[in-house]
């Protein structure tokens, strides 16, 4: 995992405190595998936006399934800016 991916795993673990961090992998599905519900997702978005200084629209959130999807999205938007 690179630094961005590690940071995302940290943030996901911070929200999903009941999930063992070792069980959060890049291919983990955030809802299906890790058990996130709507409030968890909102919480993650707020933390990610704060950490990476960017905005994630609700449409973009709809496309995200796995931890890897989050990392890819952030890397792409960092290149754009």
């Amino acid at each position: 995992m690179d630094d961005i991916e590690k940071k995302i795993v940290d943030l996901v673990a911070e929200v999903l405190v009941d999930v063992n961090k070792e069980n959060i992998r890049l291919d983990s599905k955030i809802v299906e595998d890790l058990g996130a519900e709507s409030l968890d997702i909102y919480d993650m978005i707020a933390l990610l936006e704060d950490e990476f200084g960017m905005e994630i629209s609700d449409e973009e959130v709809e496309k995200i399934r796995t931890v890897q999807d989050v990392a890819d999205f952030i890397k792409v938007s960092q290149k754009k800016s």
């Binding site: 919480d43 707020a46 936006e49």
Partner: peptide, 10 residues
């Protein structure tokens, strides 16, 4: 400090 978009959801 951070604006409306950063408001915690809870």
């Amino acid at each position: 400090e951070k604006g409306p978009k950063r408001m915690p959801p809870m």
